[in-house]
């Protein structure tokens, strides 16, 4: 049933599935921290396809990109969570649908 070696396509389809799981998390959840974790899911899905391409093509560039994406994700985590913290301090909520002050 299982092939003896996994083709690149399987990794790409898996990556697409994980990415879409993250997208659905972002559009359906109300909690800003969970939305944030769904963003991490999407970043990791892209990382998976980059590493898969890197290993199948024998090119190191993909893994270097993953390294930089991880650094950017760490920066994003620090700033994003600081924003959630100051949001909670000002509005006493982390639910994004209750934060509509900038909504026209």
């Amino acid at each position: 049933m299982l092939p003896t070696s996994i083709p690149l396509d399987y990794y790409l389809i898996l990556s697409a599935l994980l990415f879409v799981t993250g997208v659905i998390g972002v559009v359906t959840r109300r909690n800003a921290i969970v939305i944030f974790m769904s963003l991490e899911l999407m970043l990791n899905a892209v990382n998976l396809s980059l590493v898969a391409f890197s290993s199948f093509l024998g090119d190191i560039a993909g893994q270097m990109f993953v390294f930089f994406i991880m650094a950017v994700a760490a920066a994003e985590a620090a700033v994003g969570l600081a924003i959630v913290l100051s949001l909670f301090r000002n509005k006493q909520t982390v639910y994004v649908d209750e934060v509509n002050i900038m909504k026209w």
């Binding site: 083709p7 697409a16 599935l17 879409v20």
Partner: peptide, 22 residues
């Protein structure tokens, strides 16, 4: 989106079935 990616890959596989030698 995931449906389109799957259909595209099923119609035109990348043809890479083994990890690169290096």
């Amino acid at each position: 989106l995931v449906g389109m990616i799957t259909i595209t890959l099923a119609a035109r596989p990348t043809g890479l079935n083994q990890l690169a030698a290096n």
